[in-house]
Amino acid sequence: MHVNQKNWLWNGVFIAIILGLCASVYLAGKRIDYSWNWDRVVPFIINSDPLEIVAEVDGTLEFNEQGQPQIYPYDGGDPQLIDPTLALSLSEGDMVYAGDVLASIEQTRIGPLLEGLLVTIEISIISLLFAVVIGLMVGLMRVSVNPALRNLAITYIEVIRGTPLLVQIFIVYFFLGTVLELERFTAGVVALSVFTAAYVAEIIRAGIQSIPSGQMEAARSLGMSYPKAMIYVILPQAFKRTLPPMAGQFINLIKDSSLVSVIAITDLTKAGREVISGNFAPFEVWFTVALLYLVLTSALSWAIQRLERRLAASD
């Protein structure tokens, strides 16, 4: 009872601090000479502007034998055919000039920011799959008794962890990309998965080594080979223990994917930069981009927490 009351108090303090921070950010935003204009961001997320059909040539609007509207150019070239189902804002015989709006279609499309978000999701998921596969292999090599395998794994991990991801992306794109003729998206996936795999490998190594040696001994004493003991006894237990650090690494992967924008992959970050260069609302756009990343990482961390709770059945 007493403890509960204190918790209420401290929860209140927490909310007060958060509200205070929000208020000070708001006031700081007011003080600077910047006209906040959040509704300018909306079309870049969901674009509900009508799609306009414009004339391509100067000419007159007429209907052909089949009743299909066409624009016959003055200079006698090929007529521009128009979809007959459109509700035209002109009637037969009207003169039109190139660029005139002939009709407009109601529509809702995803804006460039959401398109960028989809690219970020795509590149993150593909890189994650490769990172887990490579990381598992390197992690197993890392705990192997064979010095060749072990040293290869150590070298890989040290080289990758010891150099910045940004530099690795440039090397993969400009050097490997040139040698192997990689597309920029492929180069981005290679750089991200190779980078993340080094960390995944270390997490898996730590997970395997955290399983008591008696587990391997028990499995081997039952006649299981080393690979079978790994697959059926050690890795399932290690997997459970590595989930929390793995979640952190996957969240890092999503955030690190913003770096591929430097090789002109239009991910969420690059889309944000492009939008800003067109509408000059940098503050709103960057806040929106940050929020979209946060939605993505929160969803992932929620999913992994659920998985953890399900695996806790045997505890």
Binding site: P212, Q215, A218, A219, R220, S221, L222, G223, M224, Q237
Partner: peptide
Amino acid sequence: NQLREQVGMVFQNFNLFPH
């Protein structure tokens, strides 16, 4: 591995598979 199938072992700390 085939030899070990014929020699069962019981450990001090049981070493059951917890999962």
